[in-house]
């Protein structure tokens, strides 16, 4: 299984967030690949599409020397939201398996739906065959986690400056709008400001770090108020 450097970094970060001894998401991924390959000899790889709390994460890991054009069959497993997270009913998770041989997943899909049964709480798993023959995500591209992390870290910085989370999001949005950049870039700007000496040197005297200052597209100092 070929896990790109960017994906490996994202999976390591997610494993850290999981904070469970012995858990390794990358290892789980490799195990699924190894076991699926035993079940379906022409297995070529997998994609995961995850949407949780409005955040979307997508990644693909193909077997070595596999090209997306080699894919001739697929099995998408869509998990019911109540299985992974009852507190987030809007969550959607799809795991898509790919193989080279047409119809390769027919038997496995039948078996899995039978194994899941109706009474085990997994009956709502959706199994869709051969509708995902195009890889939904470039295997070499990052999953999107870094962008999400950058935005959240910037929001954390703004909260530390005295913003509520709502104000922080608005201020980030405002910075992006005012300077004609997108939100991730605006978040990068906020984080880059942390490395500037003026950031802490010009403290507000009340224990809070000062807001960014001066000309040149720094953070807007007007902070929206809570309603």
């Amino acid at each position: 299984m070929d896990i790109s450097t960017a994906l490996a970094a994202d999976l390591a970060a997610l494993t850290e967030s999981l904070d469970e001894p012995g858990a390794d998401i990358s290892q789980t991924l490799r195990k699924i690949a190894a076991d699926t390959k035993i079940a379906v000899r022409s297995y070529l790889g997998l994609s995961v599409i995850l949407s949780v709390a409005g955040r979307r994460l997508t990644f693909t890991a193909l077997e070595e020397d596999t090209e997306p054009e080699d894919i001739r069959s697929s099995l998408r497993m869509s998990l019911p939201p109540d299985v992974p997270a009852p507190e987030d009913p809007a969550a959607t998770i799809s795991l898509i398996l790919f193989a080279a041989a047409p119809g390769a997943f027919l038997g496995l899909a039948t078996d899995l739906s039978w194994l899941a049964g109706d009474g085990g709480g997994l009956g709502a798993i959706g199994f869709v065959l051969d509708e995902d023959l195009a890889v939904p995500h470039d295997p070499a591209a990052p999953s999107g986690l870094k962008i999400l992390s950058t935005i959240d870290q910037a929001i954390g910085v703004l909260i530390g400056q005295g913003d509520t989370p709502e104000q922080a999001r608005q201020r980030l949005e405002m910075l992006a709008t005012d300077t004609g950049i997108d939100r991730p870039t605006a978040a990068d700007v906020i984080l880059a400001e942390l490395d500037r000496p003026s950031w802490t040197d010009l403290g507000a005297g009340d224990g809070r770090p000062a807001r960014a200052h001066g000309p040149g597209g720094e953070l807007p100092t007007r902070s929206p108020r809570d309603p």
Partner: peptide, 20 residues
Amino acid sequence: VLAQALNLTIQLQTALSSRP
């Protein structure tokens, strides 16, 4: 295979929920 697939998605969802 199925249990691991479910395990992966639960791990990912839990991780993505706590990451922000």
